[in-house]
Design a protein around this nucleic acid. Structure first.
Length: 227
DNA sequence: GCGACAG
DNA sequence: ATCTTGTCGC
């Protein structure tokens, strides 16, 4: 479609304007089909950054055997890097490759966890939120550091969390996913609330800092297991 | 004008 | 993000 051809080739100014527009289309209430498969997404780079590699890992969620998660499919997609990293415009650099990976997927996840911010973004459209609009799926942003918002100190215990604030509005949560480790920044992307996002991230937490979907996608995108 | 700044 | 070995600790 015409719009898609231009969406990924915008200059910084127009890109920021588009983010503000698209943010208004986000659904911040739960609209989630019964969850049977959860996908984790992450992007990596090769050839000194010339090639972008998107990785998607799909895990099976069994309410009966939960929190046991089994990998049912994993896909890697490579394509030329289209633009440099610019704080606040990460989605324009990573989403094209991510969509390529999803296109190769045979399984259809009902929930997606993305390495990056959801609505915890200057214009309310982090990579997880932007991808959620394109896939029309519930997405959760799971970032390893802060981009936007303020917060109090987080408790030391695993599971402790404190709201991430933009003025008086809560846009996410700073979660201590594991004791003695830097906290995670969780924020809803699309079709999900912060409360539900926290519940799913917590449910997918293994013994490491990152929830399984993102942890496995990270490993796959980081070049080690991808070949 | 001076910082801050996902991956 | 990426370049990179060993090493300290639960």
């Amino acid at each position: 479609m015409l719009e898609s051809l231009h969406e990924w080739n915008l200059a910084p100014g127009p890109a920021r304007a588009l983010q503000s527009q698209l943010a208004q289309r986000l659904e911040l209430e739960d609209r989630i089909d019964p969850v049977k498969h959860i996908a984790g997404v992450d992007i990596g780079f090769e050839d000194c950054g010339e090639t972008t590699r998107a990785a998607v890992v799909v895990l099976r969620w069994d309410s009966a055997t939960a929190p046991d998660l089994t990998v049912v499919e994993q896909v890697v997609h490579r394509e030329p890097t289209r633009m440099p990293y610019i704080p606040g415009l990460l989605s324009f650099r990573e989403i094209p490759a991510a969509l390529g990976a999803f296109a190769k997927l045979e399984t259809s996840p009902e929930l997606v966890m993305v390495d990056g911010q959801g609505i915890a973004h200057p214009r309310g459209l982090g990579v997880a939120a932007h991808l959620g609009l394109w896939l029309d799926l519930p997405t959760i942003g799971v970032a390893k550091s802060r981009l936007y918002g303020k917060h109090a100190e987080v408790g030391e215990q695993r599971g402790d969390w404190t709201p991430l604030l933009a003025g008086t509005e809560t846009i996410g949560a700073v979660l201590r996913s594991r004791a003695k480790v830097k906290p995670l920044f969780i924020s809803p992307g699309n079709r999900i609330t912060l409360e539900t996002s926290l519940a799913w991230v917590t449910a997918c937490l293994g013994k490491t800092k990152l929830p399984e979907p993102t942890r496995l996608a990270d490993r796959l995108a980081s070049r080690r297991d991808s070949r």
